[in-house]
């Protein structure tokens, strides 16, 4: 059974029709990456400043953590379907649902990253004459960077995986293969789409490994513990 499934999958990927046109793999992959990037950038724009602020001032940390935890419990498909009923089919509900998914991990990790900067380092920065904003930008952000990136990576992987549900509300992306494959009872198509999502998710973690090399100061590259 497994061999037949694999044969079907290979045949699906080898079909030249799969690689051209608006329903081809490159086009679907492009759509998927576009939705994911858009959602991730919007989430970072919302979550990173709030996390930096609450981490730096220590104000509202409990509220942030509680809200983030509550948001984490929200079932994404419920949020998506609800917004679709309210606002109609399109990109807006998809991006909103993905942002709701991506904000909590970025927010929590940014907050924890800044908050867990050693008090001694903060004292040293103050002793060097740094003011609040300088302490934030020149000490806390670089020291928190590994955790911020881990939060972004967790969010990115979840977004890439979940962008699949966009197809359930009539938008494109790799989820189309899963939805259409399900409708046509075409297992190879479902598995092909799933495999592509997995590959994209793995590629995403690799991109973040690269970002970590570029953005994290060499002295800080020892393994940082994630707060998922």
């Amino acid at each position: 059974m497994t061999v037949e499934i694999l044969d079907g999958l290979v045949a699906w990927f080898n079909d030249p029709a799969q690689w051209a046109g608006p329903a081809g793999i490159p086009a679907r992959l492009g759509e998927h990456v576009y939705y994911s990037l858009l959602a991730l950038v919007l989430s970072a724009l919302i979550a990173v400043p709030i996390g930096l602020l609450t981490g730096h001032t220590g104000v509202g940390g409990f509220l942030t953590a509680s809200l983030a935890n509550l948001a984490r419990a929200l079932p994404t498909i419920g949020v998506l379907f609800l917004i679709v009923l309210a606002a109609g089919i399109g990109l807006v509900p998809v991006i909103t649902a993905l942002v709701a998914l991506a904000v909590p991990p970025i927010l929590v990790n940014t907050h924890e990253g800044v908050r867990s900067v050693e008090p001694g380092l903060r004292d040293a920065a103050a002793g060097m004459g740094m003011r609040g904003r300088e302490v934030l930008l020149r000490l806390e952000v670089p020291v928190a960077m590994p955790l911020i990136l881990i939060g972004m990576r967790t969010a990115a992987v979840q977004v890439v995986a979940t962008a699949t549900i966009a197809a359930y509300v009539g938008v494109g992306g790799l989820g189309r293969y899963i939805v259409d494959g399900q409708a046509r009872q075409d297992l190879s198509m479902i598995l092909g789409g799933s495999a592509l999502v997995v590959l994209l998710a793995v590629a995403t973690t690799l991109v973040f490994a690269g970002l970590r090399r570029v953005l994290v100061a060499p002295g800080l590259r020892a393994e940082a513990a994630p707060a998922r």
């Binding site: 995986a161 899963i178 789409g193």
Partner: peptide, 18 residues
């Protein structure tokens, strides 16, 4: 285990179906 975490749940559910 981290690679496994990258696999979307929807995809895994479908991969389990057969």
């Amino acid at each position: 285990v981290n690679v496994l975490y990258a696999v979307p749940s929807i995809a895994l559910f479908f991969l389990m179906l057969p």
